[in-house]
Design a protein around this nucleic acid. Structure first.
Lengths: 238, 238
DNA sequence: TTATTTAACTTGTATTTACAAGTAAAAATA
DNA sequence: TATTTTTACTTGTAAATACAAGTTAAATAA
């Protein structure tokens, strides 16, 4: 069923201004029209305009200065992943799309796996998948995911397109991510990585190897993530 | 000079709720009091309460659900190397050596500094230093440190060779690191970076930009760290 | 001319009011 | 009993209004 949802006014203005910034109509360092001008231009009241601007500021598109105005700050965007479970929650409610490179399949674990495995994990086999995640149509993450095939019926037939792996695990299997380990390196893009992330060969790529713990004590999620940090940075708080 | 600034109401409520969450009075998954209840409890109107809650939501402490309420989401903050204050504690008790590239000097802040600065910071000027840290005689970190020159007498004449900056700040100025933000990118080594880290030019380097909060509310530490991850990975837990 | 003050304009904070829309549990119905 | 409907309560969106506080440039005074 299609939902002809009414888009809130503040959201509409947010999208317009965001588009203008991304298209370069407002450039880095420019002052946006004042709140009062935006009210008149778009027929809204100031609280509504301010909600648009505060959303823009939260996502890093502008910086507000009291007495001065809103200044465009279209710097490389930041993506939070260092302390957050998945790439979906890392990017907030921005325009995130996913394409599947390798659908979930049951395979043997690689012989030289990046983390040591328990006997149970080795015996259970490995659910393997590859995805590329796009932010505003720019490929940002090339995720290779490995999960031990322990109590995950029918997972290989589920639809992962544009959905969060973690959400599927939570909704269908009651699996929550509790924490994890990770290693980070800067490496040079291989030809495959470069192709998937639209990078020239030999370009630097961020490589994360992660082991995530779940509320199921024996079950871990492993992932090898290659990040295109040319335009977006990865950020974290601690 | 101490500024007895008036703290806005919404900020006051934000701090109270944040503290309650961090102290565990509201636990992960709990529902916060409803907006109306908070209004009555703290004698504010709903827009004001909503501003507090939206700030909490933006910083990841709660999640709001229409029709349901605000649910506490006190994500485990990062710990470990990526979250640890300095590079000294990052490498444990291994053989860490430090050489000073640029001794601490008082300079102007760079015009396009990596983080926004307060007026006080801008006025105070910037203590600048560059160091390279070796692990087992391999250069691993090239640190550029920036500190606002606020209440740090004689810091430029102190001895930083083979000592932790954080230890000096703690021992001599009673400054403790409380937390911070960081951004991570994979970049290509510049000629200077490559030379200092013994890398061929064009090699990938991990670049961290960090803003560290201290127990002194107005004082932050900034650093730009270039990591040679050829042999060692950066690791972290969360 | 130079320095200071003023005025105009900007965003920040806050109240009041109203209705829309989502959620969950109680009440009514089959 | 099981299902559906209603109701109460929650957050979401939006307007109109007021004053505080920071910034900038024009007007004024030295």
């Amino acid at each position: 069923m299609i939902t002809p949802k009414i888009i809130p006014q503040y959201r509409r203005l947010f999208e317009i201004l965001r588009k203008h910034i991304l298209e370069g109509i407002y450039k880095e360092g420019d002052l946006l029209p004042s709140e009062y001008e935006l009210c008149q231009l778009y027929g809204m009241t100031r609280p509504t305009v301010r909600q648009s601007l505060s959303t823009l500021a939260n996502e890093g598109y502008i910086r507000k200065h009291q007495g001065k105005g809103s200044i465009v700050h279209n710097l490389p965007r930041e993506i939070g992943i260092l302390s957050v479970a998945g790439t979906t929650s890392a990017v907030g409610n921005r325009n995130l799309k996913t394409t599947i490179i390798v659908k979930p399949v049951l395979v043997q674990w690689p012989s030289d796996f990046m983390f040591p495995l328990t006997e149970l994990e080795k015996e259970s086999g490995c659910i393997y998948m590859e995805r590329v995640r796009f932010l505003d149509d720019i490929p940002i993450f090339y995720d290779i995911t490995y999960i031990a095939n322990i109590n995950l019926p029918r997972i290989t037939s589920r639809q992962f397109e544009n959905r969060s792996l973690f959400q599927i695990l939570r909704d269908h299997y009651n699996i929550e991510i509790k924490g994890g380990d990770q290693r980070i390196k800067a490496i040079t893009a291989t030809s495959k990585t470069g192709r998937l992330l639209h990078l020239r060969k030999e370009q630097p790529v961020l490589h994360l190897e992660r082991k995530l713990e779940t509320n199921n004590p024996g079950l871990f999620l492993y992932s090898s993530i290659f990040c295109n940090t040319e335009k977006y940075s990865i950020f974290g708080r601690f």
